[in-house]
Design a protein around this nucleic acid. Sequence first.
DNA 1: CAGTTATATGCCTGTCAAGGAATGCAACCC
DNA 2: GGGTTGCATTCCTTGACAGGCATATAACTG
Lengths: 117, 117
Amino acid sequence: MSDAALWSALADPHRRAIVALLLERPRPVGEIVEACGLSQPGTSKHLKVLREAGLVRVRQDAQRRVYALDPAPIAALDAWLAPYRRLWNSSLDALGRRLDETSDDSDDRRESLTPKD
Amino acid sequence: MSDAALWSALADPHRRAIVALLLERPRPVGEIVEACGLSQPGTSKHLKVLREAGLVRVRQDAQRRVYALDPAPIAALDAWLAPYRRLWNSSLDALGRRLDETSDDSDDRRESLTPKD
DNA sequence: CAGTTATATGCCTGTCAAGGAATGCAACCC
DNA sequence: GGGTTGCATTCCTTGACAGGCATATAACTG
């Protein structure tokens, strides 16, 4: 459910840009406005979406609101991605074979499953 | 650029469901229609979006079109995710400290960077 | 060739999200 | 306290997208 919020939050390029900005360091809204070239209200709205998706957190510093990334939702994305890793960890040939055979689903015997990093 | 197509393709829950279906094995359209409970035209349109995002490939088998996952775009997602991994590999305390200090960016000394698997 | 199966495309409508402009609100400064 | 700074919220308009129905297209069947 909040899965949907996460994906649709990240579907917007401006919001991905904001997230990337916040990866470097937490920033107040003004800085984000300047960086992403949107109007201040527009930026605030994007921040609200990110907030409601749980992707960012706010800390109040006088009149400023300093936004920072929350790792959890991105970790959730990583978890979503996990089952797909075998697709490119195993040789692409395997996919080709599946395309050809469509029936042999017992090919758990893959290459070496070496962690990609 | 095609990055945008990838994200917006995956932003839709039905399309994520289709992608998950195709992770198990390639499937003809009919099967996908049945599985995701949409009309056949609706399903076909989702498949078109996935196709144009590069997420799936089609193989023609008589009158059938068998769809299969293409690993590349999902790998791209994984690559996008990579810079964020440090966020949850390192202790969450580190994030807390950044929230408090906002200036000390030289905290490359993290915990153990143990691969999450 | 006529009919059927399997999929794609077009058209239409309702919904929703993005972005701008104006305004509201809270905390600071003199 | 009055003005200012920093951000959020509201209203509005416009454009994009989802989903249904009808229809086109392509390949198989007899």
